[in-house]
């Protein structure tokens, strides 16, 4: 018995489909007259809704009795919620527990990482907003120390860096707090300088810091043209990480972690 012959390939259709998937993969909108492509585009947008805890809310009703959809990743671990179905609820809890045990320890490390932690590079990548707040706090604390030590040029440098970081913080509460702290440090620096009749600090004043671009929206795909891939030699957007004591990615970066 011979297997059925494969369907003939229409090269024009293959090329059109390839172009469509390229566009959808870049996050481009679907053609207006293609309803299914619109569905795929909306799906991709939903998957990109990073940081939105409500993104992708979809407890699916269990309509699969008597017919099992093809097993696979897409449907593999869809554990449903609310209806009073005891066994399914137990599965959901057990699955969540297993996953928490599997990765909870490692994940906790990035959640609590600070600029001096080994997991800081990953933590900063995972939650750039939190990284900005912690970085601004650190720089302001360093600036206060520099003022206390009489290193006014260093303090000015740190204040400038902190200002660049504070400028891109979106959380209004944190932005207000840090802006007030920044103003306080600037006042102290100004007062300290005038108290010493403008004597220069032990290190020369640095060149003005270029303001970092503020990333907006979801990051483009790795392969999309003009996707903002960091050029070798250029640090992360915002420049918050290079000056921090980051670990090497050698085997010792996660000592003792499961």
């Amino acid at each position: 018995m011979t297997p059925p012959a494969p369907e003939p390939v229409d090269l024009a259709v293959v090329a059109a489909d390839d172009a469509l998937l390229d566009a959808l993969g870049r996050g481009a909108p679907a053609p207006a007259d293609d309803e299914f492509a619109g569905l795929l585009a909306a799906w991709r947008a939903e998957l990109s809704a990073a940081g939105d805890p409500d993104a992708g809310r979809s407890p699916a009703p269990d309509r699969g009795a008597g017919r099992s959809p093809a097993p696979g990743r897409a449907a593999g671990v869809s554990v449903q919620r609310p209806r009073p179905r005891p066994r399914r609820r137990v599965w959901a809890g057990a699955a969540a527990a297993a996953l928490i045990l599997l990765g909870g320890g490692l994940i906790a490390g990035t959640v609590t990482a600070t600029p001096h932690s080994p997991l800081w590079p990953l933590a900063a990548a995972v939650d750039p907003a939190r990284a900005d707040v912690l970085t601004a706090d650190n720089k302001l604390a360093d600036a206060r120390r520099a003022i206390a030590d009489g290193r006014y040029a260093d303090a000015q440098h740190l204040v400038d860096e902190a200002a660049a970081v504070v400028a891109r913080i979106r959380d209004p509460q944190q932005a207000t707090r840090l802006t007030a702290e920044l103003a306080d440090v600037r006042r102290k620096l100004s007062g300290a300088r005038s108290g010493t009749h403008g004597a220069p600090g032990p290190t020369p004043a640095p060149a003005p810091q270029p303001s970092a671009p503020v990333p907006s929206g979801p990051r483009p795909s790795p392969s999309a043209p003009g996707n903002g891939l960091p050029v070798p030699g250029v640090s992360l957007p915002g420049g918050i990480l290079p000056s921090l004591p980051l670990p090497t990615p050698s085997g010792g970066i996660l000592p003792g972690l499961p």
């Binding site: 998957l47 990073a50 409500d54 407890p59 897409a74 969540a96 979801p218 960091p230 640090s235």
Partner: peptide, 30 residues
Amino acid sequence: RDAVAALMAHIRPGIVRYCRASLGPVAGAF
């Protein structure tokens, strides 16, 4: 170190979408 940080920031969004698409939502969330 800078390259590690930049690389992780670069690849993470795609990995998140991959995992979300592959695993789907659980209990109504990703």
